[in-house]
Design a protein around this nucleic acid. Structure first.
Lengths: 198, 198
DNA sequence: CCTACCGATCGGTAGG
DNA sequence: CCTACCGATCGGTAGG
């Protein structure tokens, strides 16, 4: 009995979370009212407060669950020391595939993360940093000599990759696995040829 | 007499515009109140309405003047048919230099443009499209054979460049001309080697 | 799980 | 009769 209720509770909470990501992304966090969110969820506004303590708590849960899952999925990619090029491409592909279907969460991350308290922002940035470090290491493995001589170059190259990946939803948000795999190859190629060409 | 007053009017309007870009970027457009903007401008809230018809009129003016000037500055870059590589690098450098000191406007563009009416958004997107077309043409000139065989590749490459450039403020916003020139070389190199490497 | 309702603050405008 | 400008407050709505 209690389990049935608890299960329904989690399902409903997850539904609110997903709906909120869409509403916050479409309207913007500040102008998306709790009334609208309730309407979109098919429940009353007061009922939302049974699952979340406030509007910011929903925002934090969206980004915390999204970024944590993204990090865990990407750092699980197997690293083969014998083939650093393939490893980098595997990682980039995994990121682009993880982005698939998460455009709303991605947009909320970019537009609304700054609305959170500093401590919560710092926690979220921790997930982002772990991801950046992981990609950073994979890129460095492809040209250790170059980067040993120029530390700033590695950072610039890594941030270039994230620039390309994080901009992807702006021009190809509906892309499927094939298009994402293709783009991963292009990004990987630009990165490798770029850094080795110096 | 009338000219002196008019001149002061324009200067004051420009001051409101610049201050609003900073306030809107820091606080977010929706949560930045007109009261705060007035305080930051050192004038009364009512006085702002002498220069602008409303909050959205300020937002539109920020983005319209910024994007128009950006477009005009970049498409003024001289194109030399004999040296398409140098032309591409000149264009990328000009964009990064135009971004310098405009981080607030850039951030407002990304986070608040969607708050405007569709007609105004469309006008702003016109400036963006002109810029994209210009870069697109410059990239195509570097590998006509490759892109004739693969139209989607050109678009992906162009959007990669904008991803790298538009992400720059996220990790090196305070960069000076030297750092921007360095990064322009890296972006150009990644782009050229990437598309020619296929 | 809802209706009813609050303190506060919003963008915008009144009179002078 | 104009422009430029202010203190005070409007109607309406936000999160809770």
């Amino acid at each position: 009995m209690a389990r049935t209720i608890a299960k329904d509770h989690d399902l409903k909470r997850a539904h609110i979370l997903r709906t909120a990501a869409v509403v916050f992304a479409d309207q913007g966090f500040d102008r998306a009212s709790m009334s609208l969110l309730a309407r979109e969820c098919g429940i009353s506004k007061a009922n939302i407060y049974h699952y979340y303590n406030g509007k910011m708590a929903i925002l934090f849960d969206i980004l915390d669950s999204y970024l944590k899952a993204l990090r865990d999925r990407v750092i699980a990619v197997e690293i083969t020391d014998e083939n650093p090029e393939q490893t980098l491409q595997d990682i980039i592909t995994e990121i682009l595939l993880a982005y698939q279907g998460a455009d709303h969460e991605h947009q909320v991350q970019i537009s609304a993360m700054s609305a959170l308290p500093h401590a919560q922002q710092e926690q979220l940035r921790g997930y982002q940093r772990a991801l950046v470090r992981f990609v950073d290491t994979a890129i460095r493995a492809n040209a250790p000599g170059v980067f040993a001589a120029n530390a700033g170059k590695l950072r610039a190259t890594t941030m270039s990759v994230f620039g390309m990946l994080n901009w992807y939803y702006m021009w190809n948000s509906g892309a499927g696995p094939q298009a994402r795999d293709d783009y991963a190859r292009l990004v990987c190629q630009m990165t490798l040829n770029g850094v080795k060409g110096l």
